[in-house]
Design a binder for these strands. Sequence first.
DNA 1: CACATCGTTAACGTCGTTGTTAATCTTTGC
DNA 2: GCAAAGATTAACAACGACGTTAACGATGTG
Lengths: 104, 104
Amino acid sequence: MDATLAALADPTRRKVIDLLREGPRPAGELAQAVQMSAPALSRHLRVLRAGGLVRAEAGGADARLRLYTLRQEPFAALQAWLDQVQAFWAEQLGSFKDHVERRQ
Amino acid sequence: MDATLAALADPTRRKVIDLLREGPRPAGELAQAVQMSAPALSRHLRVLRAGGLVRAEAGGADARLRLYTLRQEPFAALQAWLDQVQAFWAEQLGSFKDHVERRQ
DNA sequence: CACATCGTTAACGTCGTTGTTAATCTTTGC
DNA sequence: GCAAAGATTAACAACGACGTTAACGATGTG
């Protein structure tokens, strides 16, 4: 949970996540997409790997390429925590909820 | 979105969120709960406020107290983004999904 | 009014993170 | 074998985040 949110805190890493939503991509292609040097992005990918958000698999044809793919678990865990937090409002159905909505 | 995840990246701030799930609390009570000096927590609360995750309302009885409460919007926005990311797996119902599941 | 209490801001030192260039390793192609 | 390409690690400088103590403003209490 800590590693997950720390990884997602960086805009570059979130952009990588968004790029990987469209399918697995090699590291170099990601670096080009975020306008950043390969070493810089490599460390971002390291953070994402450490948090378990992505996984690197060997590219079939060219063994030099490392194809990165999204992993499911951390996102599911984060969503579970979010559901717990949002229960705060679900449980408040009476005057307090009205109060909150008025204030917003 | 950026301010939201940056705010949630810190463990102390997440603990504050979890404490506020049980109801509004004054700043001092929160500082004591996380074992931290009042100024340190005050800056954490500032970050949470800037991200719109919490809101401070004047305590009715004692005007010195600032009661902090959770706000809904950022959590809803984060959940919407998470849903988009998780669509990555929902859309993969064929052999690729099997491949991913096998790998995990 | 004098004094304590709650909360925030200011100033300071410290540690972690981010990006760049240079060097390393593996794999590919001639 | 040798040079080029993909990716990572190493070393470095720069910037920001975090916590502490000290100082400040605002509100309650005698």
